[in-house]
Design a protein around this nucleic acid. Structure first.
Lengths: 166, 166
DNA sequence: CGAAGTTCGTTAGCATCCGAACAAATCGCT
DNA sequence: AGCGATTTGTTCGGATGCTAACGAACTTCG
């Protein structure tokens, strides 16, 4: 989705619409580019890495979180991944059917469900994650390591503000 | 979705999983924080600005693009906004029913549809966009103007790589 | 001309994800 | 101990957005 208009053109039009109202164009550019970059990155990774495995984006995140932190409770997976409990229920079902992980009711607390990887799931992630990371490297290849750290820090700052004001 | 684990903890676990394999942790952090920030920002803006208007995120983007560039062809709206033609058809129908914009077949080319705002649509955006921009300012308030520009630039660089390799 | 190919918007079918409501289990307070 | 409040995972209904297929309108080129 390459925008056919430049940033300057857009700013000019917006300023024309609202006359003398003071607007924060830098903030506008950050938000707009944030969504563009996130969508483009997701599409890129789904196409280049995930499509071959038949995993959806969310399914991969669930697998990744479980792989790292297993055994893990489902509520923690939802919190780490940033999606709702309802979504997680469906995705866990799919991944369990495919044989990548297992659900098990907790002994200590009958409400909780613990999740662990199966050997097949671990084997998948052993090869899938390095591939994924290699593409993450490609995505950020135009930035040197120092700037990557800065970028991650600034994104964290934004997340902090938007998640804080709840 | 505040992650209960720190970055360092996550890196340690991942390194433990894959032993000696070389991984790019900075790239991993960038991608992960990119999605977290985008989701948190979208939720924040939907909650604080859009929910009162009954507009979905996509509907707002369509309205915004049309407001700035009207009269505009539907294919251009889809390109600017970054969604599919099929999605646009539905959203345009909704916005037309609500009386915010109008469709009109082109005289020059019978395949094209031109879109213009109604007075009600313009009035809505005249008050809605300044509010939206004020919240965008809040979102980036922890960064000074120079860093906001840097952030927008780095996000553009990522978009360029991921959209380029199509 | 006119037939083949292209482009456009729409439709239909499908997958994904969420909020609300719910049942089961646990906790807290007296 | 016991009963209301809270927490957890699941189910259900709805909203959203995409791909593929399609008809209509235009373009190309022999």
């Amino acid at each position: 989705m390459p925008s056919p208009h430049t940033l300057a053109e857009t700013e000019e039009r917006v300023a024309g619409k609202l006359g003398s109202l003071p607007l924060d164009f830098e903030a506008m550019a950050v938000v707009s580019n944030l969504f563009r970059a996130a969508n483009a990155t997701r599409n890129y990774l789904e196409r280049s890495v995930l499509s071959a495995t038949g995993l959806s984006w969310t399914a991969f995140v669930v697998l990744w979180v479980t792989w790292i932190w297993e055994p893990i409770e489902t509520r923690q997976i939802a919190e780490e991944g940033g999606f709702s409990k309802a979504t997680l229920t469906g995705v866990l079902g799919t991944l369990e059917t495919k044989g990548y992980l297992q659900r098990e009711r907790s002994d200590k607390d009958g409400r909780l469900v613990n999740v662990t990887m199966t050997p097949a799931g671990r084997e998948l992630m052993n090869t899938l994650f390095p591939t994924f990371n290699a593409h993450e490297q490609t995505i950020t290849s135009s930035l040197d390591p120092e700037r990557r750290r800065e970028l991650a820090d600034m994104l964290r700052a934004i997340t902090h503000v938007t998640e804080g004001q709840r």
